[in-house]
């Protein structure tokens, strides 16, 4: 039994004053996510990621199709006790402290009152908010709010965790912490379904990713599988000022800084280029594979317009 099963899920929003016009937010979507998997849901802003998550959370009703989580219907309270959800850019109740917030959510999840305090402390510990447990949330920074949000999503020890853009709005340190946290969740055998428009996060974490654009699924599979079809690139840096004819004839653009030269080439040209440098006795400084493999796939799938959106840092 898959942890999440989505069958022909479709959403059309009525738009306009008289609801005459309609906007298709989601083409019929089919997905099956296994238990214990970390699944990345990729796509530029407005691709339909949040819509899918909202349907799964029962916040928005699908126009057609069905979905099951842990084999149960989406409005089943027994299922809802076993999932956690972090919405995109949450704010929470300004006047509660982090501890009160978590207690409240724990009560709503029907947690055992005797264990609640202990579990709240554990969750605060996990997201490194123990020091601010008694501070009202209106005094929290954006990053702290995001962590409080993650704490409420994992507080009740759910089997499946849904995270909508968990890394957005975080500084590099915060992002690394969230990555570690997701890895820990995987270690505990939980299923994690997270959406992101930041490719490197997905590439580093996910067992599998799905790429969605304009409400349509464009590709699904393990990161390695997806990138296999796209050839990578390498960056070659050398010293000496000159550009060998062998490299120039490849048509690649050279950047120079003083007498240091830099060029980015398709992977298959790497050997020819190095050969040319050796022949000219130029001093090789570095050969680095450019880690944009998933991005390349992304660009290939969605076209360049989507690329600029997709790689822009999270807001």
């Amino acid at each position: 039994m898959p942890a999440i099963e989505i069958v022909d899920l479709e959403k059309i929003y009525a738009a306009g004053f008289w609801r005459k016009r309609s906007k298709r937010a989601l083409q019929p979507l089919n997905l099956a996510i296994a238990e214990g998997e970390i699944f990345g849901f990729l796509g530029p802003n407005g691709a339909g990621k949040t819509t899918t998550l909202k349907i799964l959370m029962g916040l928005v009703f699908p126009t057609a199709g069905t979905a099951r989580i842990l084999g149960m219907k989406l409005d089943d309270p027994r299922m809802k006790a076993q999932i956690g959800f972090l919405p995109e850019q949450p704010y929470f109740y300004d006047h509660l402290t982090a501890r009160e917030l978590l207690r409240y959510y724990g009560q709503l999840s029907g947690m055992d009152p005797k264990q609640l305090s202990r579990k709240v402390d554990t969750a605060l510990e996990q997201v490194k908010l123990s020091g601010s447990a008694n501070v009202q949330l209106r005094k929290f920074s954006k990053g702290m709010l995001q962590r409080a949000g993650i704490a409420q999503a994992i507080l009740h020890d759910p089997k499946v965790v849904f995270l909508d853009e968990p890394m957005s709005g975080l500084d590099p340190m915060g992002r690394r912490e969230v990555r570690t946290l997701i890895e820990e969740l995987k270690g505990q055998g939980k299923t994690v379904f997270f959406s992101t428009h930041i490719l490197s996060d997905a590439e580093a974490l996910c067992d599998r990713v799905a790429i969605i654009h304009q409400g349509e699924l464009r590709g699904i599979g393990a990161v390695a599988e997806l990138t296999a079809s796209v050839h990578g690139k390498v960056e070659i840096v050398w010293q000496g000022g000159a550009v060998p004819a062998g490299i120039r004839s490849m048509g690649a653009e050279c950047h120079s800084a003083g007498d240091t030269m830099r060029v980015i080439l398709p992977e298959e040209n790497q050997d020819t280029a190095l050969e040319a440098l050796r022949r000219e006795h130029l001093r090789l400084i570095s050969v680095v594979p450019v880690r944009t493999s998933l991005e390349d796939y992304f660009v290939a799938q969605l076209g360049t317009s989507a690329k600029s959106e997709a790689v822009s840092p999270g807001t």
Partner: peptide, 12 residues
């Protein structure tokens, strides 16, 4: 504040 989402994704 999206708090409703976190409430309704629970058994409420």
């Amino acid at each position: 504040k999206r708090t409703l989402y976190t409430v309704l994704s629970r058994p409420v």
